[in-house]
Amino acid sequence: MREDQTGQDAPPDDESARLDALSRAAAAGEAAAYRALLDRLARPLHGYAARLLGETAEAEDVTQESFARLWRAYDLSPPRGPVRAWLYRTAHNLCIDRLRRRGRTMPLPADDALGRHGLDESPSGEERLQSAARAQAVRGAIHALPERQKAAILLVHYQGLSGREAARTLDIGEDALESLLARGRRALKAALLDRRGDL
């Protein structure tokens, strides 16, 4: 489920331009603009960190630290380029540091693993379980991907970043990003769709 604020079919570039305008106003000292940035970016950023880390408490820390660094950057040298990519890159690097420190991805607690499906009131308990099993399978398949492929899929599919922003976040070219996405999605297709009958 994509978490950007533009809706599934809106081009990500438009939203990026709006966020950059808010960022410029925030850098000029407008607290309201900064709060608007928070409204639009805090939840997606937390979602990205939670998915990448597989853990929610650390995702909170990463989200907080990312915005704190944005504040400090406004004082020293405001971000060049798209602010959304800057924030995701900061959060991504913080997540990677934490993952390397712990050496592996920790499993999500049961409720978080279910995500919102765990809270949905579906018509039947069986349907809930099936939905949760599918979510768990997707999560497992994505976490089995190599780190860069996983990040590319999370940024583009779930966070709704444009290819250019995702490439900037990962500090690679757009062609390299496309290659990561294609390989990642092929692997996911093999892992998920080929065993659809089991889910």
């Binding site: 900064y34 709060r35 805090a42 998915r51 995702a59 907080q64 978080d112 995500g115 996911l188």
Partner: peptide
């Protein structure tokens, strides 16, 4: 298929905490 995996909800108290630094 990928959309089946929803992100964990953001804790309700995180947004006010972040906004508290918004100056």
């Amino acid at each position: 298929m990928l959309d089946e995996w929803a992100a964990p909800d953001m804790p309700a108290n995180l947004a006010p905490r972040l906004a508290g630094h918004a100056r």
